[in-house]
Amino acid sequence: MKGEFRSESVEREGSPPSAELAGRVVRAVEEALKLPHPAPADEALLRDVEGLDSLLEEIAALREFSLAMARGELDYGARHRGVVIGALKGLQANLRHLTWQAQRIASGDLDVRVNFLGQFSEAFNSMTDQLKGTLREKDRLAARYKDLSDHDPLTGLYNRSAFQEEAARLLTDELFRERSSALIMSDIDHFKRINDSFGHQCGDEVLRRVSGLYRVGLRQEDIVCRYGGEEFLILAPGISAGVARGIAQRLGDAVREMRIVWEGSPVAVTASFGVCALPPLGQDGFTLRFLREHVQIADLNLYRAKHGGRDQVVGGDCDDADAGAECCGPEN
């Protein structure tokens, strides 16, 4: 059997007794296990011990593997087999698996779990749980800040930059990109007069109430923003300017019929509207310039509505959506 000493070969005449030889073998093995640089067992006497060379070679392999593991060389390939090296390979396998798990976390997968590694598993899993919780909180805060940065604090409507982002998303959506849409620009009539007569708090209340009316008076896919002081901009995707004109008239009716009483006095509120058709997106796709040009036309129509006596809608009387801006431009 491997490692068995051939006593008959060493008990020849003139050779040391077995006990002495056994002692030398033990010392050689001990040195191989304990000394940093063991001397090779090249005594002539030891050469006759069958299996000692291969035993020392295995110990040397074990030393190298242990040292490689201590240095963190996880790719070290141990060729020898057996329980002790096998146990070290088990540790190596665990560490390599942990490396893989850590790489998974680095790639954003926080659902990885380590099992059967005792306290380390608990600590590792607790770490990923904590990380997950922290990222969830970060996402929640990011969403909250995004919400704050996208919305007007007084009315809760989109602000201008968020409106642009949403408009880009809507107009490039496959549902709407090949269809005409419409813009409606609205302004509360004589808003300065309301502020001067009833105070700014009343003005704020009027803005909130009008915003509320616009929000409930529009379709789910329409978007509205507070464009400036008392100005609102609406994008109604997938409908003609003529239909948008009808929507604007209904919103105007709702504003006129709204009842606001401020400190015992009724506050009369009306709004004016300018409508503009948005043609389907061309080859260039959505550009801010495209949006700005059409907002400008809606704004000019709003200007005409103001000069025409307020509380009215201008634009959208031609229902040829393909005609776009020309149809609803100020020259019409």
Binding site: V83, G86, K89
Partner: peptide
């Protein structure tokens, strides 16, 4: 490449 039956403690 490694097996309990080759003295290892995990199969690889």
């Amino acid at each position: 490449v490694d097996c309990w039956c080759t003295g290892d403690r995990t199969c690889r």
